[in-house]
Simulated scan of single mutants.
Amino acid sequence: MSMLVAALIFVPLLAAALALLLWSFGASWPIRDRALLAATMRGAPGATAMWPKTLSFLLFLVALALGVLSLALADHDGGGWVLTLTGAVIGIVFLARGVLGYTEGWKARTPNEPFRTLDRKTYSPVCLVIGTGFVVLALMRLL
């Protein structure tokens, strides 16, 4: 059961990592140009450019590492309490980001479309699922 939960976390993290890797090389996939990609990924007013390519690459490494960490959490014998605590903290961070997407303060800070709609319909729910998965994996390691 824990491998299924880990796989359900790993897939969206791997997809995000691959997109970030492509963006770090200057691609705008799956959007037709970088200006629209910036509007899709950044909701801040006046955001017309993507973040620096080096940041995209660093985020690629983080997303990939989080995906690998989710798979490591499925192994109940490895990592000890440090891995369990790390998974729980990461889960709480993802849950907080997911909830944040539905607050009025976040809506005011990120009003640009299409980010606003995508955040409400996709980004925040995916963060809630990933966060729940990490917390579940951490709890499964304790039981």
Rank of each mutant, 00 (worst) to 15 (best):
V126Y: 05
R97C: 04
R116N: 08
T122A: 15
P111W: 04
L83E: 03
L118Q: 03
I130G: 02
R109M: 15
G105Q: 10
G131F: 02
I92P: 00
C127D: 08
V89L: 15
R116Y: 08
F94Y: 14
Y102W: 14
V126D: 04
R109H: 14
T110P: 02
L128D: 03
T122V: 14
S124T: 14
T117Q: 11
K107F: 03
R120D: 05
F115M: 10
A108F: 05
E113Q: 15
C127Q: 04
A108P: 03
F115T: 06
G98R: 06
R97H: 09
G101C: 02
F115N: 06
P111E: 07
V93Y: 00
L118N: 03
W106H: 15
Y123C: 08
G131C: 10
T122W: 14
G87D: 01
T84M: 12
T103W: 09
V93L: 12
P114K: 08
V129I: 13
E104N: 07
T103N: 10
T122N: 14
P114H: 09
T117H: 12
T103S: 13
T122G: 14
E104D: 11
E113N: 14
N112D: 09
D119L: 04
F115K: 04
R116E: 06
C127A: 15
S124P: 11
I90L: 07
T132C: 11
T117Y: 11
G80Y: 09
P114C: 13
F134C: 04
A108W: 04
I90C: 04
N112H: 02
F115G: 04
A96D: 09
F134G: 01
W81D: 15
P125D: 11
I90G: 02
V99S: 00
G105C: 08
L83C: 07
Y123E: 05
A108D: 12
R116K: 13
V93Q: 02
T122I: 15
T122R: 15
N112P: 02
G98I: 05
P125R: 07
I90Q: 00
F134Y: 13
A108H: 12
L128A: 06
I90D: 00
G80I: 09
T117G: 08
V82N: 08
T86Q: 04
I92G: 02
G133P: 01
E113S: 13
A88T: 07
G80E: 09
N112Y: 01
G80D: 10
T110G: 02
G91S: 11
L128F: 07
T132D: 04
C127E: 01
W81M: 13
I92D: 01
G133L: 00
V126A: 12
T84I: 11
T86N: 05
T117K: 12
